[in-house]
Structures are given as structure tokens and as C-alpha cells.
Design a protein around this nucleic acid. Structure first.
Lengths: 168, 168
DNA sequence: ACATTTTATTTTAAGTATAGAACATATCCC
DNA sequence: GGGATATGTTCTATACTTAAAATAAAATGT
């Protein structure tokens, strides 16, 4: 029988392979995090410099841009994967700046409906265009014919992680 | 000549292909960000619940664990890709809690040297073990024989982005 | 030697993040 | 109807993040 660093009654893998898999998983996670941090930091910096705008605020506008009739406020935390309390000051500021409106629903006075204004939509389009070209600039060095394959692998990864999180 | 939404005197690609590449790049970025956010959020939640500890603090300990003789404070921001000012309160708290020490250098009184304590090292090992198993749990559903290939692609991506950021 | 510049670190201001408590309003069940 | 419960939103406390200004010490140039 092969050497095993740890007894592993459940898994059929040997301890050595298990350790190797651990390392491969850690490497993957560190690379993933490094890529995301690198790109996100650069995009944030440019948003700030060019438009004096932040990414969370842009993300809110991006969601509302797809919903001409507005969105129930409670829908935003779900779509953006952030906590609800977090959105209050962000929405506050977007209203203050005139990019969106927030009106209570007549049917359920707990509910708020947020909707982009004309100026908000105009500002969003301008920023979205820049966002796209910045991304293209940053990813230009990566072969175009491997983009979809990588996206597919990340999709598989995302699915696997979601499953793992939902099960227990 | 094919229909082109925008004139593109530099690129040999047609407007249509260019648009398709834009979309593929955006898809990739959104997937990458979703994966990183998903995993990071779960790891952070567990750190908090199990150890009442945060990831930035863990990251600092992880760097110091590799340096038995300590590290110049200024080296941390570079390795962790965060701003220097950000680290001051984090290091403060780690010192307060007895996980690390911070001592001014005798040769250059501007320089601070940070070093993990025995208790800090012990706490780090315990947390690192959990961190590894959490990651293994989250990534268990992703085929082990595709880990390295995905890591390699992300390496290529990271290199491409770094090049794009350094050039201009 | 002394003024200038560079380097290391901390402080400050604004914004973002979470968790959890608090509040208001609806809905359910009797 | 009226009390228990559920839901949508905001508030509070704590922590992290960046950029930019402030501080302090060292290195450099004349």
C-alpha cells in the first residue's frame, strides 16, 4: 500500500494525491483572486479618474438600465450579491445626484421602486462605453479564440462552488 | 465589404467580429468576478464565524509565516497588492492581539520590521489548515484533472493584463 | 554643512462591506 | 378585528479600501 500522510477512510485517493490536489486547488484560487483583483483595481481606478464614479454605483445603474420600468429595491441586493443595508447609502447618493428616482409603491408601502432618470441613462451609456473599451484594452493580450473556453471553465467552477455551498 | 458598426482603421477585424470579441471579453470578466466574489465571500464568512478573523489579517500572517526572520513593513503592501496606508491599522491590531511584533530598525529609523510571534504562528497554522479544507470543500465539484489547465489559463490572463497595464 | 529630494510610514477623508438590531408595514390565522 | 409572524428597508457598529496629505528620517547635490 502507498504511503499516506493522513488516513482518509472516505476518499479512495492516497494521502499524497490528496495533498497534491490541495496544492492545485490553492494555486487555482490564488490565481483567480489575483486576476480579479488586478482587473478590478484597474477598472476602479479609471472609473474614479475619468468619471469620479465608483464600481458599486455603476453596477446599480447597469441593473436599472435593463429595466425601463424600474426595479423593486429589494431586487438589487439579490442581483448584485451584496447585502441590503449596503445599498441604502449607495442608492441615496444616486438619488441625490439625480441619476435615479426612488418612489414608494402604492400597493405595498414597505416597497420602494427605483428607476433610472434620463440623465442617469445618458451618463450610464457614456460610462459603459468606456468600461467596454478599457476591458478590451486590458484583455487585448489574451488570445481571442480562447476567451470562450476560459469562460466555460469558469462557469463550471462557479457551478461547482454554488453546489458545494447549497448542499450542506 | 462586411457591415461594420464602427469604422476601425487600426484593427484588421470587421466591426461585427470586434463587437463579438467585446461581448466575449465582458462575459469572461463577469464570470471571473462572480467566481472570485462567490468564493471570497464564503471564505470570509467562515473565517469570521470560526475564528472571528478577517481575510486581510490572515493574508498578513500568511506572508510572515514564510519569513521566520520577519519582514520589512514596506514589503507587505507590494506582496499583498494593497495600499500602504491600509496596512497600518491592520498591523496595529495584529500587534495589539499579540500575533506579531513591530520593531523599528536600528539601521534606518524610518523602517519597521514585523515578525510573527509564537502564538501568532500557532494561530496561523490552525487557521491555514481550515482554510485549505474549506477551499477543498468548495472546489470538490470541479474535476481535479482540469485544475492545472485552468490555473494555466488564468496565468496567461494575468500576464496579458499586467502587460497591458505596464505598457502605456 | 545645508537645502533639496527621496523614501517609509501614518493620518485623514470618503466610500464600501458585513452582520445584526430596529422599525414599519403586510399578511396570516384564529 | 387583533395578535403573531413575516417581509422590506434602514440604522448601527465594526472593518477594510483607496487616494492624498502629513510626518519623519535618510540620501543626495552643491
Amino acid at each position: 500500500m502507498a504511503l499516506a500522510k493522513e488516513s482518509s477512510p472516505v476518499s479512495p485517493r492516497s494521502g499524497v494525491d490528496q495533498e497534491a490536489e490541495y496544492r492545485a486547488q490553492t494555486r487555482l484560487w490564488l490565481r483567480l483572486l489575483a486576476c480579479a483583483t488586478l482587473i478590478e483595481g484597474e477598472l476602479r481606478r479609471r472609473f474614479r479618474e475619468e468619471f469620479d464614479f465608483t464600481m458599486p454605483r455603476f453596477d446599480v445603474l447597469a441593473q436599472l438600465d435593463r429595466e425601463p420600468s424600474g426595479l423593486v429595491l429589494g431586487e438589487l441586493p439579490k442581483r448584485l450579491m451584496v447585502s441590503a443595508g449596503n445599498l441604502t447609502p449607495i442608492v441615496d447618493r444616486l438619488v441625490e445626484d439625480g441619476f435615479i428616482t426612488r418612489t414608494p409603491s402604492n400597493l405595498d408601502r414597505r416597497v420602494q421602486i427605483v428607476c433610472m432618470t434620463v440623465e442617469g441613462r445618458k451618463a450610464f451609456r457614456r460610462m459603459a462605453k468606456s468600461h467596454g473599451s478599457w476591458l478590451a484594452e486590458l484583455l487585448a493580450g489574451f488570445p481571442a479564440d480562447r476567451l470562450d473556453a476560459l469562460t466555460g471553465e469558469l462557469d463550471a467552477l462557479k457551478g461547482a462552488v454554488k453546489d458545494a455551498m447549497q448542499k450542506p
